[in-house]
């Protein structure tokens, strides 16, 4: 009966869903592809270079960090690829490549790894790295005044809107023929990614929808109920991209659905306040970062009500 000793013992359940961290991250990468493709089509091959450098720097810095701290290499979970990808799509195409690399290293090492790696960071790595770059490399990283872009050497719609100028066409805003960061110009491409993530059940829709709706409603109020201006504010800048790809980051947003709605509304409100009253043209990054910091508290306060019971 020696064979009998080979039976394995474990606690139930004995089966599990095939999804893993890597497969979730792969879904996010797939969802980012339409946006990246739109960016490459609109801005040219340099956009691809920015994306490639960002991803490579992110992956390399995570590998090296794992070697230094003698931890198992976490690159196969693909999360560093996602971080590098998202950061690249947040940058203007004119960004010097070394700066893109520095941003990726900052995102991975400072914001993610030093806090304990995946799932432990309190702020979105790509978002925080973007803010770091806007302040450190103000002249080149800010998407407000693209300086060396050949295709769109005009001010981005957000800056124009700040002066009360409407973009030439809404179709342009939607398809992405106006200025901005690589990944924020085509609303259509972002929405394709959004739908993909929803269908694959990678994200829940509550944070993005409440985020975008809040920005729309407050823009409507601040613009004296002018629908066209409100719509222009909603479709321009990094709002859609941030709402879909960053306000849904697992580590840095609340776990419950109600928490996600609070996150979206809060981030939306801060975005609008900065856009209308702040000195930066864009507020999405700061809105998300601020709500990232509040997330542990939201998770503490907003807990699902158990079926047939009360939280004591």
């Amino acid at each position: 009966m020696s064979e009998q000793n080979k039976l394995h013992i474990s606690v139930s359940p004995h089966i599990s869903n095939p999804r893993t961290t890597a497969s979730i991250m792969l879904d996010v990468i797939i969802a980012l592809l339409p946006t990246a493709l739109a960016g490459i089509i609109i801005f040219g091959i340099r956009a691809l270079a920015v994306i490639a450098v960002s991803i490579a720097a992110a992956v390399a810095s995570e590998s090296i960090f794992c070697i230094i701290v003698k931890k198992e290499n976490t690159v196969p979970d693909l999360s560093s690829v996602v971080t590098g990808f998202i950061l690249a799509l947040n940058l203007p195409v004119s960004i010097p490549l070394w700066q893109a690399a520095v941003g990726s290293v900052f995102a991975i090492i400072v914001v993610k790894c030093l806090f304990g790696g995946i799932g432990q960071n309190f702020a979105n790595p790509a978002m925080t790295a973007r803010i770091f770059m806007i302040t450190a490399f103000a002249a080149t990283a800010s998407v407000a005044y693209p300086t060396i872009v050949d295709t769109t050497s005009v001010a981005t719609p957000l800056v124009e809107l700040g002066y009360g100028l409407l973009p030439e066409s809404f179709l342009g805003l939607f398809l992405g023929t106006v200025g901005g960061a690589i990944g924020e110009v085509s609303s259509l491409a972002i929405l394709i990614g959004f739908v993909y993530l929803l269908v694959r059940k990678v994200i829940r829709p509550f944070a993005p929808i409440s985020f975008v709706l809040t920005v729309f409603i407050f823009s409507l109020i601040f613009e004296g109920f002018d629908l066209t201006y409100a719509l222009a504010w909603t479709l321009s800048g990094g709002l859609l991209f941030g709402a879909v790809f960053m306000a849904t980051d697992y580590s840095t947003t609340p776990i419950t659905d109600v928490g996600k709605i609070i996150f979206g509304v809060g981030a939306g409100f801060i975005t609008v306040v900065i856009r209308f009253f702040g000195s930066y043209p864009e507020g999405v990054s700061f809105g998300i970062l601020f709500m990232n910091i509040l997330t542990p508290y939201i998770d503490k306060l907003v807990v699902n009500k158990p079926f047939g019971g009360k939280i004591r």
């Binding site: 893993t20 961290t21 979730i24 976490t74 979970d77 999360s79 790696g117 995946i118 799932g119 432990q120 829940r204 697992y250 580590s251 776990i255 419950t256 659905d257 699902n304 009500k305 158990p306 079926f307 047939g308």
Partner: peptide, 16 residues
């Protein structure tokens, strides 16, 4: 592997 805080355990719990 490390928890990624995806929240699937919370959103799938039949007893919330």
């Amino acid at each position: 592997t490390a928890c990624i805080r995806c929240g699937a355990c919370v959103s799938h719990c039949p007893l919330s």
